[in-house]
Design a protein around this nucleic acid. Structure first.
Length: 120
DNA sequence: ATTTTGACGACCC
DNA sequence: TGGGTCGCCAAAA
């Protein structure tokens, strides 16, 4: 693939990350899928690790099971928990509650007019 | 050219 | 839940 393509993909990822509203979280995989590149969760992670993008809400990205991706107790881990909590997100034991209730999911779909399947 | 490396994920006990 | 396995993908070695 050309550098042009990887660049387009990178921007697609960044756009999806920026699209996650404060107080909500999304998994690495969900970002990749929404950007149109399924199976590239690791790439989203790498992108965030590289940093370089200003004001990117990196703290709203967690693992598919809702857990913080950093080792518990690390500075980054604490920072992410703090940022999420400041947005009203419940972080318990290094894990956030991924709206799992069917009813709640349906409500979210209506309120945010988002697709149900890949919505965390 | 081949192997290793991750801020990952789906599955299976 | 919690732990282990195997698959993914592109960058770094």
């Amino acid at each position: 693939m050309s550098t042009h393509d990887s660049d387009a993909r990178r921007h697609a990822f960044i756009a999806e990350i920026r699209a996650v509203p404060a107080g909500q979280v999304a998994s690495y995989g969900a970002i990749a899928r929404r950007a149109g590149y399924p199976r590239n969760a690791r790439w989203v992670a790498r992108l965030l690790a590289e940093g370089g993008e200003a004001d990117l809400p990196w703290h709203r990205i967690v693992r598919s099971d809702g857990r913080i991706a950093f080792p518990a107790g690390s500075a980054a881990f604490d920072e992410q928990c703090a940022r999420l909590r400041s947005e009203g997100v419940d972080v318990i034991g290094g894990r956030v509650r991924l709206h799992s209730g069917a009813g709640e999911q349906w409500l979210d779909a209506v309120l945010w007019s988002k697709a149900l399947p890949d919505d965390d």
